[in-house]
Design a binder for these strands. Structure first.
Lengths: 314, 314
DNA sequence: GGCGCGCGATACCCCCTGGGTATCGTCGGC
DNA sequence: GCCGACGATACCCAGGGGGTATCGCGCGCC
């Protein structure tokens, strides 16, 4: 049985007349008679009663038509759904990211992406950079934002572009003596209670501080350790001490906090956007477009890695 | 787009290999490649990624396949449902009947029919005979059991067969003086409180009694009137008086009641089964089969009206 | 590193079948 | 009783679905 048979049966039921149904289908009446006869032969039951007053479905025909209409609706939806998916207007995007990425590149990108692609389900997974890399290589994520380039098995197959440069900055509550300062020197941190994110989540901050303050520094040893940079800012705002984190923090100002540069300027690893070029999908391309639009420097780097924009532009 | 394209796409997704999918479909590989290419052209999107390790659906392909499988399931169900309906194994039967028919022919018929055709929904409508006839002629019922042959517009197009002959009998409670009698004479009814069904529902009983007792008989004038014959029996069982109704009542004995013949024997109109021969359906045929099997006399009458059994015997 | 092989795409051909025209059978209605 | 409407049938044609042969291209294996 072919979709043609369903279309013909539905048209015949709607017009209750072979000639008019055939005209509506764009064919002549005899082929329609033949196809309906063939359909009835295949089903093994008469589907239409040919009376003088019109052509009406039998009980079997009525049962058939219910399914036929449903099948035709599914067939139509198949094309539509596939085309939508091909244009990246539906589907899902699984994004792994380190918590601090929520400070700077992600808010704008996610807001814009979900506005431009309301049909795409965003699955956001906050996780450590190492887990993001592994999940990306294993196909469990579509795109990841990590600290530094991904390493580990499969990482060499990933495309990675830096999303921006970072250096170490300090954050204090408004009532803190350092509030209002443009910058603080490393020496000013030595006898302050320090707050920084834990090793796994933001390992670079702790490493940078070790470089600045010395390996066994008491200030570092007694530092308050938070799970992620958001908590660091929150604790600093409460006056617990001097928070230390990536300069990305400046992009998300929060009332009651004050940010100062740390001198000497201490670079931190870049935030990096990665994905598997083999698993590119229209949704991923759409996401990359949004990233391009939000951070022009990323666009140039992407073009260098993928060629000047895919032809599947929506 | 034809069902063939859906079948091919599903097979290709299942085998992840053009050659094996083609073999499973019973065709060669090149036609499958062509059909998939044509499908992708029509949808306007690549549906499968051809990699060295196999053929996998793209995001668009995955969306397409969901709909394709659903459509194919509907198409398969269309045939099955139609065949079932053609065999009278599904659908509905709308039966109109007079209340007293529940005493005799209907219990056995309905029990047997619902056992033989569990997929058919029985719609039972108790109504006066005149309404049944009109509903049958108007296409609102498939079959009706009425008192006497249907009359009124459209009734001449109906096929009607008597389901059995009836005459007037009396029913009393076990404690009644008549309990235990084989028969009662008309004279014995003259000074008894009588119970009979109301005019609309069982008009023949009242008419028969008028013939027996005389037009202005005080016994008739003071008779208790119930809506239907079931109530008559119930009231008689309570000792309210002598119930009068069709001999069909004998078929549904009820504890605490006693039935006696009324002499002289007074025939009542037959219970008649009617349907529209133009609207015959497999379900109706199946119902008529059950009626035949339950009441052999009806079978002969039906055969006389319709020919010796339809060829669509299930 | 070259050859072989597995796989999908392409080229080309055939014939099946879907659709066309012409016509018939039949049943109502005027 | 004739005509007209409608579905079925007969017959023909051509488009396309499916066949075989072959190519292009990686990958893997000596």
């Amino acid at each position: 049985m072919e979709a043609r048979h369903l279309r013909y049966a539905v048209a015949l039921a709607e017009h209750a007349h072979f000639g008019r149904a055939a005209t509506a289908l764009g064919i002549a009446q005899p082929p329609l008679s033949k196809q309906i006869a063939a359909l009835e032969r295949e089903v093994g039951a008469r589907l239409f009663d040919r009376t003088r007053r019109g052509v009406f479905p039998t009980a079997a025909g009525a049962a058939f038509l219910v399914r036929a209409r449903a099948a035709l609706a599914e067939i139509g939806a198949a094309s539509v759904d596939a085309a939508r998916a091909a244009r990246g207007e539906s589907g899902r995007l699984r994004l792994g990211f380190i918590a601090s990425a929520l400070l700077d590149p992600l808010p704008g990108v996610l807001r814009r992406f979900s506005r431009e692609r309301p049909g795409v389900r965003l699955e956001l997974h906050e996780m450590a950079s190492s887990r993001s890399s592994a999940a990306l290589a294993g196909g469990e994520l579509d795109v990841a934002v990590t600290l530094g380039r991904p390493r580990g098995i499969g990482a060499e197959r990933l495309v990675s572009v830096p999303v921006g440069h970072d250096h170490l900055v300090a954050v204090v509550g408004s009532g803190h003596p350092y509030a209002g300062l443009r910058s603080v020197a490393v020496a000013q941190l030595l006898h302050q209670p320090l707050i920084l994110a834990s090793g796994e989540d933001e390992p670079a901050v702790a490493a940078g501080l070790r470089d600045l303050l010395g390996e066994g520094s008491p200030a570092l040893a007694s530092a308050t350790v938070a799970r992620d940079v958001h908590t660091v800012i929150g604790l600093a705002a409460c006056g617990v001490g001097v928070g230390l984190g990536p300069s990305r923090m400046l992009a998300a100002p929060r009332p009651g906090t004050w940010f100062c540069e740390v001198t000497p300027r201490t670079p931190l690893p870049d935030l990096v956007l990665s994905f598997s070029p083999e698993d590119r999908s229209p949704v991923l391309d759409a996401f990359l477009d949004v990233v391009r639009a939000n951070c022009p420097v990323v666009g140039a780097a992407l073009d260098r890695r993928l060629g000047p924009r895919s032809e599947a532009a929506g």
